[in-house]
């Protein structure tokens, strides 16, 4: 039996998400085992599940591996400068508050070079969904230490181990004022999809951290194949919705908390602007 005629093998391809991806750009650039693809796919499924017409969404990415996501989604999408996805998206949101704005980017982009923008968008409760693929490393540049790299981890710029402590992203998002904060891994992809769906429908600044393996530039130097990383996600995570984000630091030795940490309501930036600044005069 030749490959072409074997049952269950479809060389034409009609994946259920094909209507949301730029199929002419597939395969994407992400390495085998990279978690970005799963996080991206999950995001597309979540968009689909909202039932909202696709052209009412827009996606903005920064720079880095996950920053390429904007180039694969078949809606109006923007691949901007390093760290600047959130302020670019803020401009879109404030000029067109009816649009559903998604920022899809990486930990280096959103929390090192773009950290200031992140906290201010959260403070203003800018009505957008920020999805951070956290692979604990700068992947695209070849594996340098990030603001999320665990202490002692080996990277190309911490050859003796990382001397610094990483950020606790859910805690930062909460402290800065986010309306919705969740963390999942790509292994928990059903929960992740539900969380993204909730976040898309949630009014206000929503933040979802997605733990994802970088087998080439993190795993390789820290003796972790991508399947090992996923097994770690299975064995060393604790699902605890409503957990205190202060306890959300990533320590696989102790166990990493997953779930929805925060889900609260607060007026959004555009609502407050309208209410405060637009004077109704006859």
């Amino acid at each position: 039996m030749s490959a072409n005629t074997q049952p269950g093998i479809d060389h034409q391809g009609a994946h259920p998400l094909d209507d949301l991806i730029r199929t002419d750009r597939i395969p994407h650039i992400w390495c085998p085992g990279c978690g970005t693809g799963t996080a991206f796919s999950s995001c597309l499924t979540a968009i689909k599940a909202t039932g909202i017409p696709y052209n009412q969404f827009t996606m903005v990415s920064g720079i880095g591996c996950s920053g390429r996501a904007a180039g694969y989604i078949k809606i109006d999408s923007f691949h901007t400068t390093h760290g600047r996805a959130i302020p670019f998206a803020s401009g879109i949101k404030m000029a067109r508050p009816d649009l559903n704005v998604i920022v899809f980017s990486g930990d280096g982009d959103l929390f090192a070079i773009g950290g200031n923008h992140f906290i201010h968008a959260a403070r203003r409760n800018m009505d957008m969904t920020v999805i951070c693929v956290n692979n604990l490393i700068y992947g695209m540049t070849g594996g340098q230490v990030a603001a999320t790299t665990p202490s002692k981890a080996k990277t190309t710029t911490t050859p003796f181990g990382n001397p610094d402590a990483p950020f606790n992203l859910p805690l930062m998002a909460y402290a800065a004022g986010a309306s919705y904060v969740a963390r999942w891994t790509i292994l928990h992809v059903r929960d992740l999809t539900n969380a993204i769906n909730e976040a898309l429908l949630k009014k206000g600044f929503s933040f979802i951290e997605v733990l994802a393996p970088c087998p080439v530039n993190y795993g390789r130097r820290n003796k972790q194949k991508s399947l090992d990383t996923l097994r770690l996600y299975r064995e060393k995570t604790i699902i605890r919705n409503g957990a205190d984000p202060a306890r959300a630091d990533i320590d696989f030795g102790r166990g990493v908390i997953l779930g929805t940490f925060i889900d609260r309501d607060r007026d959004t930036c555009d609502e407050l602007y309208d209410a405060t600044c637009r004077r109704n005069e006859d």
Binding site: G8, H15, W30, G33, G37, T38, S41, S42, T45, L187
Partner: peptide, 25 residues
């Protein structure tokens, strides 16, 4: 991948949603 025991599929879609490549459903 190939389906080694196709009759065992329960249509849970997990392969579809964890696949980073849009390559299986």
């Amino acid at each position: 991948p190939q389906t080694s025991r196709p009759d065992d599929c329960v249509n849970c879609h997990y392969c579809e949603i964890i696949c980073p490549e849009f390559a299986i459903y």
